[in-house]
């Protein structure tokens, strides 16, 4: 499976490399894979691509952690006080359905062109799947665990830390895996809409200069970064499931 996937990837690259000279596609429209690879290496060597990647990743991580912590906390409040959940559910569903791209210009307006609007946007898109996952983790938790915490008279904190959080970890991982893709997308959207650093900024600059090789290189690089984040979490999820279930 894995091998075949790699063959598939290499196959596409070869096809692409062969097709460009055969069909005589102009380079400014479709540079070959080697040219794109060289451009990426050049951007690294010139010294600032690594920094742009770092910027984007730190926006993703910062926002992700912020959104996840707030999401977990909200789920906890909802599970403890069902009345709060009853009251807030319509509001949350409403906010969840509003396309997040509508919020992006507002964040740019309020927070400027730096990293903070991207962090905020990433946090917003991360919040919902994590909150939902945590809530269903707690809700569908084995009822006996809550019996145990009653018998042991655990404090709310102990109950959260020793029982609810670990019990929800499998669903939490599933939610977080969904959230990574959203988070990457949010960071890139934020950077495309207005930024002076980050991978999205490099991408936008490439477009303005009609520099196809850079744009393609960044698209490929972003794909792999997105996939890597996803794969790491997915691996974590499987480890957790193997270990406990």
């Amino acid at each position: 499976m894995f091998l075949k996937a790699i063959i598939g990837l290499v196959g596409i690259a070869v096809l692409w490399g062969v097709a460009v000279p055969i069909f005589d596609v102009p380079h400014y429209l479709l540079p070959g894979p080697i040219e794109v690879a060289e451009r990426i290496i050049f951007l690294f060597q010139r010294g600032d691509l690594a920094w742009h990647i770092y910027v984007t990743l730190s926006e993703v991580f910062g926002g992700f952690i912020l959104g996840a912590v707030v999401g977990i906390a909200a789920a906890l409040v909802f599970s403890r006080f069902p009345i709060v959940e009853r009251v807030l559910t319509p509001l949350i569903l409403l906010l969840q359905t509003i396309p997040k791209i509508a919020i992006a210009p507002l964040l740019l307006l309020w927070l400027g062109l730096g990293a903070s609007p991207k962090v905020a946007l990433v946090a917003v898109v991360t919040f919902f799947p994590v909150m939902t996952a945590m809530l269903s983790g707690i809700r569908y938790m084995n009822k006996s665990y809550s019996d145990l915490s009653v018998v042991l008279r655990l404090s709310p904190w102990q109950r959260f830390w020793h029982i609810e959080l670990p019990a929800a970890i499998p669903t939490l991982f599933a939610g977080a895996t969904v959230a990574t893709t959203l988070a990457m997308t949010a960071a890139v959207i934020g950077e495309l809409m207005g930024a002076n650093k980050g991978m999205g900024f490099v991408l936008a600059t490439g477009q303005e200069n009609a520099d196809t090789a850079t744009v393609m290189g960044m698209v490929i690089l972003l794909s792999f970064v997105g996939w890597a984040l996803f794969a790491i979490l997915d691996y974590g999820r499987r480890r957790v499931e193997d270990r406990f279930l």
Partner: peptide, 15 residues
Amino acid sequence: LEGPLVVIQTAPKIA
């Protein structure tokens, strides 16, 4: 082709 498709699926396609 499923491998490449997984990569694409998890990529920020908006890029």
